[in-house]
Write a protein that binds this DNA or RNA. Structure first.
Length: 731
DNA sequence: GTGAGGCCCCTTTTT
DNA sequence: GGGGCCTCAC
């Protein structure tokens, strides 16, 4: 076994070879975090401190788990089987399947993804006659998940007023509905697994004595419940090795709690905090820009990245007149880089929000540059695939009401809203599932429902004993989905995806997916595995890689969030405008600006050799033109590190431009379409005012000297000024 | 019961 | 500008 310890720097080596104790590793961007994590595991095994079965390593994404597994496999002489390596949800799922009885779940319980959960919540609210304007389904979904992530069941949530009481009642009803239907949402996987360990001493002791070493990746992204789960699992004897970077915490909005890092230090009495500060990715100027920016955050554990690779090029800055101009610049510049011999796949265009990609895509498409957009719908989330999966879920468990409602009338088979309302009433009255309540309805509607029940029944019968792929093929064929989509104008892709689903089932390795689940007879963790359930679980927990364009030389487009963990030779960080980045809605939130700054930090540290920052004076967003002020983040990067490709702020007196300036959406031009309308001024023009400083005209009315213009002065506010009175000057 | 057109809203995202 | 959802007309 070759660990190549000689290639590690002193801090990395210290982390890898740390004696038997808890540790917190503050691993800066590009500091070799994954390498340290995997080498640590290999070192523990090699030194005989632990056997593979005593190791549990947990990550956030399937991708990170796969990466870790691949590196370990390459490093170890033996297969890493026996170790528990996976995502929080994957590991909790595994535990719940093994101990489903103790956890109070059916062995083949189904997992609701976010969309399934929302559908289930809507159904609940409608059934309970809840006013959806007062209790929006999305808000309720958020409420349930937030409580679960705090580890609270309905009975434990403090109630202060009537509204809160209603929330809690609905929370209880939602959980009861899930329980009745034998389904669990994502947060439930964690909470149920946590409760299982908490309430069952035998199991807790079993796992506490099994896992000697627990390693946690991206620790800054853990939420409170995940942290408590780790604490419980570690018990008093396991050692926890937590790796994270508080400066890269960008998921507070979905419950991540950076505070877990400090809490971990305290709760576990961590003796050793190791900082990995040498960056192996970026050139000096890029790193200095990142460091200078993040230094503006107050709440930091403190860390300063350095590099031995030299300062490299300056950070290039570009100002466009419009988003279209900015996109044109991106096209020209990436083409120029390509001519110099760089691969498009080594360049990335990053943006704050997905809506920004459209203009860029349009320009790239026009120029014939092949590109790949990350994010968006993934394979198992596509409507047609989810429909097919719903039929499969019903074949496995006919009481799955979410799946039932999804396809009972898709393709259309004459079962309308009225019929379903009646059926739901009947089911509620009996406390039974929809499927089990079909007999309650007679007449024509009852007949159509009975036919559907027969279809599901025959799917179940006829797939008994078949291989997984045959099962999927049979169910897809009988569902009528293929005929339905064939008849649609643009249905070809969907038909294609349905056959792709059969292929995915054939390629699905049941053995691998369930490795270690079916252990020896009498083993406490043993669990019989049904391939269909394994496949459906895989579909829910791993929505599928973004397909298409993998491996070809395509320019990479993605949000800053999805760029985390990746690196590129050249990075274009676009749309650096107040209101967009930092986003106006974040600026309002507590600690929101700091998270935006960390986001910018993550973006900047993705670049190896070359970094571009760009912004535009005007941008079309949500169908309206907005006139923007450059991002305050420009003020936070020392001038000496940058090189402006356009005149610095194009004549704007940057110093006077305030750092808080929510972007203004300009109303439709009120008879003010001509460029020189209001006393020589035009919308979008930069102006200065003696008292308010620099600003930009966002609206106007009237003509000549009677005209009034609305000016966005950023922090000084937005003012209407009479052109004839206010001494406005063109900037 | 079904499909077409109107209306609303609009960060970030993994499991 | 555009996608999802709802209402309305057949």
């Amino acid at each position: 076994m070759s660990l190549h310890l000689e290639h590690l720097n002193p801090e990395q080596l210290a982390a890898v070879t740390l004696p038997d104790q808890h540790a917190l590793i503050l691993a800066g961007a590009g500091s070799g975090k994954t390498r340290v994590l995997t080498t640590r595991i290999a070192w523990l095994l090699k030194s005989g401190a632990v056997s593979p079965a005593g190791v549990l390593a947990v990550t956030f994404t399937n991708k990170a788990a796969r990466e870790m597994l691949a590196r370990l496999t390459a490093m170890l002489p033996v297969s890493p089987r026996g170790m528990w390596i996976g995502t929080f949800h994957g590991l909790c799922n595994r535990m719940l399947r093994a101990h489903h009885r103790e956890a109070g779940l059916p062995q083949s319980f189904q997992i609701l993804d976010t969309a399934d959960q929302l559908a289930a919540v809507k159904r609940l609210l409608r059934g309970a006659n809840v006013d959806e304007d007062r209790f929006p389904p999305k808000d309720m979904q958020y409420f349930f998940n937030a409580r679960k992530e705090e580890g609270l069941r309905a009975g434990e949530v403090p109630v202060s007023d009537a509204i809160a009481r209603r929330h809690v009642e609905l929370y209880a009803a939602y959980d009861a509905q899930c329980q009745r239907e034998g389904v669990a949402d994502f947060a439930e996987l964690l909470l149920r697994s946590y409760e299982l360990l908490r309430n069952n001493e035998v199991l807790r002791e079993h796992y506490a004595s099994r896992f000697r070493h627990i390693l946690v990746d991206e620790f800054q992204d853990t939420n409170r419940l995940q942290y408590r789960w780790i604490r419980l699992l570690a018990g008093t004897s396991a050692r926890v090795f937590a790796v994270g970077d508080d400066d890269q915490s960008i998921y507070a909005f979905r419950g991540a709690n950076v505070g877990n890092m400090a809490e971990f230090e305290r709760d576990f009495g961590v003796q050793k905090v190791i900082r990995l500060e040498q960056n192996y990715r970026s050139h000096g100027n890029i790193l200095d820009a990142a460091n200078a920016l993040i230094a503006h955050n107050r709440n930091r554990l403190g860390k300063n990245l350095w590099t031995a690779t030299g300062e490299g090029e300056r950070v290039r800055v570009y100002e466009g007149e419009s988003d279209v101009e900015e996109a044109r610049f991106l096209v020209e510049e990436t083409q120029a880089l390509a001519r110099e011999g760089r691969r498009y796949a080594d360049m990335a265009i990053l943006y704050r929000s997905n809506a920004q990609s459209r203009v860029i895509e349009h320009a790239l498409f026009g120029a014939g540059i092949s590109y790949r957009v990350y994010g968006g719908l993934r394979f198992f989330e596509r409507a047609e695939v989810k429909h097919a999966l719903a039929y499969l879920r019903l074949a496995a468990n006919a009481d799955d009401d979410t799946a039932f409602l999804r396809v009972v009338n898709f393709p259309a088979r004459g079962i309308g809203a009225r019929t379903l309302e009646n059926l739901q009433d009947a089911a509620r009255a009996r406390g039974a599932s929809l499927h089990a309540s079909i007999d309650a309805l007679g007449g024509k509607a009852g007949g159509a429902l009975a036919a559907f029940r027969a279809l599901i029944g025959s799917m179940r019968e006829q797939t008994r004993g078949l291989q997984l792929a045959e099962t999927v093929e049979h169910v897809v064929a009988r569902s009528g989905l293929v005929e339905h989509y064939r008849a649609e104008r643009d249905g070809a892709d969907r038909v294609e995806n349905l056959s792709e689903l059969v292929t995915a089932a054939a390629a699905f390795d049941v053995e691998e997916a369930t490795a270690g689940l079916e252990t020896g007879q009498g083993d406490v963790e043993a669990v019989p595995v049904d391939p269909l359930t394994a496949f459906l679980t895989h579909a829910a927990l791993e929505a599928g890689e973004h397909q298409a364009g993998e491996g070809q030389d395509a320019l990479q487009l993605m949000t800053v969030h999805s760029a985390k963990g990746l690196e590129f030779d050249a990075v274009f960080l676009t749309g650096l405008e107040e209101g967009l980045f930092p986003h106006e809605q974040s600026v309002m939130e507590r600690d929101g600006l700091e998270e935006e700054r960390r986001l910018a930090y993550v973006a900047i540290t993705r670049a190896r050799h070359r970094l571009y920052l760009s912004f535009a004076q005007t941008r079309m967003l949500h169908g309206q033109t907005r006139y923007n002020v450059p991002s305050r983040f420009f003020d936070e990067i020392p001038e000496g590190l940058t090189k402006w490709l356009t005149p610095r702020f194009a004549g704007r007196r940057r110093a006077a431009v305030p750092s808080f300036a929510p972007a203004q959406a300009a109303p439709k031009l009120k008879g003010f379409g001509r460029p020189e309308g209001a006393g020589g001024f035009r919308i979008g023009q930069n102006v200065t005012h003696n008292k308010f400083g620099a600003g930009v005209i966002v609206d106007a009315e009237g003509h000549g000297n009677d005209a009034r213009v609305q000016v966005n002065f950023g922090r000084q506010g937005v003012k209407w000024l009479a052109v004839g009175v206010a001494k406005l000057q063109a900037a």
